[in-house]
Simulated assay, not measured.
Amino acid sequence: MNEEQRLNPRLNEDLRFTPKPGGPALYGATTEKPVQYLTVAERDGNVIGYVWANDEDDAAGWEVRKAGGDDAFNKGARWARKLHDAKARGLAPTTALAEMVRDSDPASSSHVVPDSLQQAPSLKTVTALAEQ
């Protein structure tokens, strides 16, 4: 068997990643405009992060609170998933926040802190809160 016969033709395939249309609908990940945000806490009241939204830029996201550690990061997946589901249903970002307030259950592992809906001049304000 010579060298040419041993080469697998698949080793020469073009493996570049080319994104295809039709993936999940997502809110924008950033905005320079004012945002509304909710505080999310565990059952014991420890704040684990913030959910924010801006309708003008169709943007929304989850900011995990750094001091919450791995547990806050893991519980935050639930809130990010709620945003993905809301976008898939065609909800405006702030409507998604209102739904989270309405459906929040303080008995669950994490919940929206009652009366925590606030306005921030920018996403940077919320990000700074999450760094504490």
Score class of each variant (00 low, 15 high):
2 N>A: 15
3 E>Q: 14
3 E>G: 06
4 E>Q: 15
5 Q>A: 14
6 R>F: 10
6 R>I: 14
7 L>E: 13
9 P>E: 05
12 N>R: 11
13 E>C: 00
20 K>A: 15
20 K>R: 15
22 G>R: 09
22 G>W: 07
23 G>T: 00
25 A>Y: 02
27 Y>I: 02
28 G>I: 08
29 A>I: 10
29 A>T: 13
29 A>R: 08
31 T>A: 09
32 E>Q: 09
33 K>F: 05
35 V>G: 01
36 Q>M: 05
37 Y>V: 02
40 V>F: 00
42 E>C: 03
43 R>A: 07
45 G>S: 03
46 N>W: 07
47 V>E: 08
52 W>I: 00
54 N>W: 05
60 A>N: 02
63 E>H: 04
66 K>N: 12
67 A>G: 09
71 D>F: 06
71 D>P: 06
72 A>W: 00
75 K>F: 10
76 G>H: 00
76 G>T: 08
77 A>C: 01
80 A>V: 02
81 R>E: 12
82 K>W: 10
83 L>I: 04
84 H>Y: 12
84 H>N: 11
84 H>S: 13
85 D>G: 10
87 K>Q: 13
88 A>L: 12
88 A>D: 12
90 G>A: 10
90 G>E: 13
91 L>E: 14
91 L>Q: 14
96 A>K: 04
97 L>Q: 05
97 L>W: 01
98 A>H: 14
100 M>K: 04
108 S>Y: 05
110 S>W: 03
110 S>C: 08
113 V>E: 00
115 D>E: 15
116 S>T: 02
116 S>K: 08
120 A>Q: 11
121 P>G: 15
121 P>E: 15
122 S>A: 10
122 S>D: 15
130 A>N: 03
132 Q>E: 14
132 Q>P: 07
